[in-house]
């Protein structure tokens, strides 16, 4: 009896945490490409977001964008616009939308979609050059996107 209660409680906690996550295919995108609802229900952490933006294995946003506040990250690219005041010019929902799938906002952009798992031509498992086994994971998790959005909102 006791054991059963415990298991039940654990699965409830898991269930509650999970219920807050919006899967990539379930994201509700507005006509202008913005995404109003948080992908996790957990507020983003701007410090984690900064790390994701500047880290090659994570967002690697600096491959294409110069991010002046991350001055100690070497080799920032200039394929996309400088990210210095996007927190002023976009709402949180708009930034979330750009990250989820930039093509919903800028139709022919070269910026990858960070929360999209289908509709690709010959996608591989990471940088292995081999097809994924099972479902393709998004480039960033829902929480990582929330963290990046929180960081971008600080750029004013």
């Amino acid at each position: 009896m006791k054991l059963v209660t415990l298991t039940l409680a654990a699965s409830l906690i898991g269930g509650v945490a999970f219920a807050g996550v919006v899967a990539p295919k379930e994201v509700v995108v507005a006509d202008d490409g913005s995404v109003a609802q948080s992908l996790t229900g957990v507020p983003g952490n701007p410090e984690n977001g900064a790390a994701i933006v500047g880290t090659k294995k994570l967002g690697n946003c600096v491959a294409c964008h110069e991010v002046p506040v991350l001055a100690d990250v070497p080799f920032q690219g200039n394929v996309g616009p400088v990210l210095d005041d996007v927190g002023d010019r976009y709402t949180e929902a708009e930034l979330r939308g750009i990250l989820v799938n930039a093509k919903n906002v800028f139709p022919d952009t070269v910026m990858p979609a960070f929360y999209k798992v289908d509709g690709y031509n010959r996608p591989a498992k990471g940088f292995t050059a081999k097809p994924p086994e099972g479902e393709l994971p998004p480039l960033l998790s829902g929480q990582q996107i929330e963290d990046v959005v929180a960081f971008l909102m600080t750029l004013k």
Binding site: K56, A63, G77, N78, V79, V110, Y120, N121, P123, L139
Partner: peptide, 19 residues
């Protein structure tokens, strides 16, 4: 998965820095 054509880098963006 990055969804880029050869042209994205070598036609649209040559002479830019990517990292």
């Amino acid at each position: 998965q990055l969804d880029l054509a050869c042209a994205a880098c070598h036609e649209k963006n040559y002479d830019h820095m990517i990292r």
